[in-house]
Design a protein around this nucleic acid. Structure first.
Lengths: 244, 244
DNA sequence: CGGCTCCTCGAACAGTGTTCGTTGACGAAC
DNA sequence: GTTCGTCAACGAACACTGTTCGAGGAGCCG
């Protein structure tokens, strides 16, 4: 015990230039930033993901992030690649290519949808992180093993990427709505009540289909769309086979 | 002539609250706002579309817009519906449903793609403007006339909406890049050079497919994906036919 | 113990969507 | 014909955004 305990309790005189707050020199890093951002993304969605928010999560200021990440775009790219790393990739097996590709794309959809609306950054961009490349490689390997022609394989990656991203956004928006306190069921109920109230002479089909329009959740709809695409690819594969 | 011309030439005493500048009371309207916003959207993309920008285009301030439009979201909804109104809708003809649906969706893609990246607002939202409803009605009528089962029809609208929006964004991003002064060709060349430089032992398929990956533009890729989906739907229709 | 090079970070800038309260013009009522 | 009420218009402000600048401190190498 030193005799200075009383002095220690005194506040600093206000004309002292205040010391920096004991800066423990937290070593910031790309990984830490990505991890913090991913947490916010999952918990509060992409709208809550600002540079300042990530920084405060790490106990620092926004400017500090720019030593490790060039822009927000780059951070989002890193996040996307991180998320795509959650997908596990099968060894291609030509005999079961339809099951394999369905499983892989379903897993991709799930990985995107469970991480807020990160899928928004996938649209309009060719993702080129290491994990993204691995997913693309695995996808193309499976399709090729299944006998899908090369050009179709190449375009299918693109097309299905768009489809998976778009439906993942839809699913994620559902979650967003719930987080905002809204009840998606009630929202859709209102939508369909509006459909049902449309003038029957000008919207006969819409009115007639209201019951089936209400059917199924996001996963059902994704599975349906995926089935359409896989059927289409199988058709292409069969044609290629017949041509040889 | 009044005898006060000399007094009129005097500057107002500085403690007088200055009169507003002869406000000509331009009559603002929802239509005018949508038209101005659409112009900006087409010319400079959705990132340039701020409330202030629209307002200055109309010779006023941002606050004035809020008398006619609740939020920016609502303005974007109006824009989307306006764009969807550009699509012309055929009378359903069961004998040619595949051609009809292909034409309709191609036209939808084109309408979205030619209006900046307005397609971004379509994702994760069920569009319910009058024009949107008409497009949905026409889509479902064609598919139904083609013998596609009701549940498939209902989900197809959703699924294809996502697909069309996603590919339209991709096409629009291309245009954005060009506007920003970049050369998309050069961009893709760099991407594919990177693909070609990947370690061949870990990315054999990617490396092998580089030539076909470079093939085709946005429209080719959209047509390919659309064909997959339409094939899938035809399969469903055939199954339904066989079951009866 | 310098000197050097990074990392850190408060402050500032230009921009965003939106709200507030005042102003002014028009239509209706007396 | 004058007065009044209502509502669109709008300047200013608020709380936020991504990003840059420059000062300062920490660690390492000679």
């Amino acid at each position: 015990m030193s005799p200075m305990t009383a002095a220690d309790a005194l506040p600093d005189p206000p004309w002292w230039t205040p010391r920096k707050t004991a800066a423990p020199r937290r070593s910031l890093s790309r990984e830490a930033i990505v991890a913090a951002a991913l947490g916010i993304l999952r918990a509060e969605g992409i709208d809550a993901l600002s540079m300042r928010r990530v920084a405060t999560e790490l106990g620092t200021g926004a400017a500090s992030l720019y030593a490790h990440v060039a822009h927000k775009e780059e951070l989002l790219d890193l996040l996307l690649d991180e998320v795509l790393g959650e997908i596990d990739l099968p060894e291609p097996d030509g005999a079961h290519w339809r099951e394999q590709i369905t499983a892989l794309w379903t897993a991709s959809h799930a990985a995107l949808a469970r991480n807020g609306d990160i899928a928004r950054v996938l649209l309009g961009r060719v993702p080129m992180g290491p994990n993204s490349l691995c997913v693309a490689e695995a996808t193309m390997a499976i399709l090729r093993a299944g006998g899908v022609p090369d050009q179709a394989v190449a375009w299918a990656v693109d097309v299905v990427g768009s489809f998976v991203a778009a439906t993942a956004i839809e699913t994620a928006e559902h979650v967003n709505l719930q987080r905002a306190g809204g009840d998606p069921g009630e929202y859709y109920a209102r939508v369909f009540r509006y459909f049902a109230a449309l003038p029957a002479d000008r919207f006969p089909v819409t009115a007639a289909l209201v019951p089936v329009l209400t059917q199924g959740d996001g996963d059902d709809r994704f599975a349906f769309g995926l089935d359409l695409i896989v059927r289409g690819l199988a058709g292409r594969a069969a044609e290629a086979q017949a041509a040889t």
